[in-house]
Amino acid sequence: MSTTKEIWVFAEQRNGRIAGVVNELLSKAQELAEKSGFEVAAVLPASGCADLCQELFNYGAKKVYTLDDPKLADYQNDYYSRAIAALINDKKPEIVLYGATTIGRSLAPTVAVMVDAGLTADCTQLDYDTEGCNLLQTRPAFGGNIMATIICPDHRPQMATVRSNVFKKEKLGDSEAGETIEYPVDLSGVPERMRRIEVVHEDDNTIDLNAAQYIVSGGRGVGKPENFKIIYDLASELGAAVGASRATVDAGWISHHHQVGQTGKTVCPVVYVACGISGAIQHLAGMQSSDVIVAVNKDPDAPIFDVADFGLIGDLHVIVPEFQKQIAAFKA
């Protein structure tokens, strides 16, 4: 099978803004490029792409394939999948990476069956095996109980989705050079079978969990919805976002936008403070790669302490307000 020796990153944009995960993937792709000798390229479906290419160059794309068409202004699965599949079938890249966003997780599996490629979801590590010439795609399975490394030896491209905040992004400069390739799009044969008619933003979080440097999360140990106040108070003192375990979301104490974990958000702050969270494997799956983890729990055997850098054994209703008080004093 003859392929173009390229690693592609799907350059997801919403309202003309590139998703953060795209830049993280470009940084990772560069690392893979050094090992494999492949070149890093981005694929940008949009309507009016010119302004967005520079950002992609700045994070390491050497090339950007633009798919410029009014029908590609916003994500629509039929149009996006067909446009990208046509490009893949023509250029035959070695690797295609997608952010595991609500868009990437719909698009990538559709493209995978269209172009007959393997796809590994939610990878937490990517590496390149120079001997076998395979992308090593590592991800948790069975709710995080095991890790599995997946390869696609006989199919190209090798495709993977990665959640945001799993890899670190690294900007190379402000005016990196790169080549823009305007690839022709023909969607005339694709019937219009679905239309987005309304977009509603309802995030009540003052600080975006995905971008937060500090996160304070509450679990069932918080006791009741009103008690989340002490979590919010500590968070605002720290300039932190508020996270939550699924138990508290299911109980209706806090909205699901705050849920951290396997079925919530994956976060990677500098400091993650888990208060009254037992540390179920599904919760750990979403916060384990935080730089420093602080756990407050009254049960010394809680599994959260297995991943904590600093474990505080005791009652969160005393410890959390004390933490807030001392942070306030520290800042003063």
Partner: peptide, 10 residues
Amino acid sequence: PTKVSKIFAP
């Protein structure tokens, strides 16, 4: 297309 090449504990 995908094959599991290795399984290990986190």
